[in-house]
Design a protein around this nucleic acid. Structure first.
Lengths: 360, 360
DNA sequence: GTGAAAGCGCTAACAC
DNA sequence: GTGTTAGCGCTTTCAC
């Protein structure tokens, strides 16, 4: 356990081999868990490794392996939802041969730099969470490494998986209509990601259910939500239900309503979007649309894994054997031509901020 | 920019050298930005690299370099404060020779595993954010790589940097006393990290300022804060000021007060702790104690960097030269015996939830 | 200013 | 079952 007290180097496989009285190849077999070593030897090697404090050098292993099983994940430190996705992704690769390599986008570090690092580590595939780059630029920086975009819908050139926002808003509308609401307002956030899809979803769902659907600007923050609430209160009549662009905006509305004595849901029903942590807290209890973090993360990982496998199969292994040095032309592995796009259904989480309208 | 359309390999230095008509050594010099290449050559090499889409292999570079300048950072996905720290740390290494390598602690992945990965990548130093492991275990898994704990105070065996909680609470007490409050309550959270320090800080500060200081249990969540608020309202007389263990608890209290028509700060002053994002929002405006994220992150990075430099200086470089193979005993580099402990002062952020007591 | 060559720690044929 | 060996892509003397 405790390392020997002499100066210098970290233990390597050679040291373990020496300590156990075997060859390095055998040590490699044992630490990799590969077949080809007797139980007795395995035990002796593992013992020796433990004794001298051996930790396998990942840099060397990765360098030597023909292809990396690692999945590089590019995420934003500022995005709580990304952290949820990270949890799911880590869980998804537990006890597989894959592991996750992280690269963060921060205020001082752009997405390009983050992705570049992942390429420099030669990940087998890359997942970019909520990428802000155009697909052209994305595939350029990925430079041949399979790339999957999660939490954002992209065009036809790239693999991606995101929530089905159109369906999500429809869920909210249907919920209110079923409760008996006839006039519902959607507080959209102009220019925000997914705004177009949500607007369309709202209009379509309102039409389909015969409700009066009005779209107003309600922003993505508590402040803008509060402002909208004030504006709504100034109307002759309050709409019976309002769907916020996200939970933060809904929270801003709720705050104004509570302070002004407007009872929720008796006087007005409020629906959020995101099912953020705060929405579920006991003193908030906001009805909201939940994105399926689990499904999204899982799908992104599965897509990435399948791309890694693709590379294996489409690889040059058969021809590589016996190839004269320098005989193969330099280039990147080709991508599979078929891209996958996945829209993950959202779900409605009914809590305390929605109920039948007063008039019923 | 676009890679050649042939099958297989990624471009290596050899390919760049060939494309530019120089040797690989020269390419290395150029991509490292080292001295020893003419401007003309430099340009030619960079051009060639760009043309064939060369990205330097970080695994190979790291493996070959005698020592790594990388700082491994172990963080928890669930901790918003860790993400702030990541931002600061990334900013701190921008345009230095150091870079950040991330390893996440998630519900499915313990701190031990996260730290182990960092060791496997042979980082030059490791920073663990808010480590939950005992120092004995920490140094065991770090196995000779310098380790710095941030956002938690440790004993004498380890480098660490954390907020000065004792001083932080004192700040809150002094603020209330200066406003004229004589009876203040501290809602502690038994067993939470930093609770002991905060309790002591509260008692000492109350004593020193001649105020009546009472410590009650108020927990770390909105729910427990709300419960405490209810309990306080049942008393014959409300204390004139209450200091919550953190912002979440304070938020729970505020929610109860608002709903019950208790005016803040007129009827009671409330102080939070953390200066979380929500505390500053326009509809909350919570007076709170802010941890100095910037200073903490910066200090942690500086400590880590200094440990990396230590290793260089304490290294075996001079003796290593001309050493017969196998002549040096296997072991880890020795740590500097002197550990650094840093308490970062917190600051008071005065917002709208504190004011003079009603009796004044 | 430039090139040849050794080797970082590991894996994976291949021989025995 | 076990040992020998040839590199993965890079950096870094050391000659020229």
């Amino acid at each position: 356990m405790t390392p020997p007290p002499s100066p210098g180097r970290r233990p390597t496989m050679r040291d373990v081999a020496q300590e156990a009285g075997v060859s390095t190849a055998l040590v490699s077999i044992v630490v990799r868990g590969a077949v080809g070593a007797s139980e007795a030897t395995r035990g002796r090697v593992l013992d020796a490794a433990q004794r001298i404090g051996y930790v396998r050098d990942e840099r060397a292993r990765l360098l030597r392996a023909r292809r990396s099983m690692d999945i590089g994940v590019c995420f934003e430190t500022q995005q709580p939802f990304h952290h949820k996705l990270l949890d799911v992704m880590y869980a998804a690769v537990v006890s597989t041969e894959h592991s996750i390599v992280l690269s963060a986008v921060t205020p001082s570090r752009g997405e390009g730099a983050a992705l570049h690092d992942l390429v420099a580590y030669r990940c087998g595939a890359i997942i970019s969470l909520g990428s802000r780059l155009p697909s052209q630029e994305l595939s350029e920086v990925a430079s041949g490494i399979p790339l999957v975009v999660a939490n954002r819908s992209m065009g036809q050139e790239l693999d991606w998986v995101s929530s089905d926002d159109e369906q999500g808003i429809a869920l909210a509308v249907e919920h209110l209509v079923e409760l008996g609401h006839r006039d519902v307002v959607f507080a959209t956030s102009a220019g925000a990601a997914g705004a177009d899809e949500r607007n369309e979803g709202f209009t379509a769902a309102a039409e389909k259910s015969g409700a009066i659907g009005e779209i107003v600007e309600g922003g993505s923050t508590e402040v803008s939500g509060a402002e909208l609430a004030v504006a709504l209160l100034e109307r002759d009549e309050l709409p019976s239900g309002v769907i916020a662009f996200n939970d933060r905006s809904a929270l801003g509305m709720l705050d104004v309503f509570v302070r002004r004595g407007v009872r929720v849901p008796h006087d007005i029903s409020v629906v959020g979007y995101d099912d953020s942590e705060i929405a579920g807290r006991s003193y908030v209890q906001l009805t909201t649309i939940a994105q399926d973090t689990q499904a999204m993360g899982q799908a992104a990982v599965e897509l990435a894994v399948s791309r890694i496998v693709d590379e294996f199969e489409g690889g040059v292994r058969p021809r590589e054997v016996g190839l004269a040095p320098g005989a193969s032309e330099t280039s990147f592995p080709r991508r599979s031509p078929e891209v996958s796009s996945l829209r993950i259904p959202t779900t409605l989480v009914v809590r305390m901020t929605t109920g039948p309208p007063r008039s019923v």
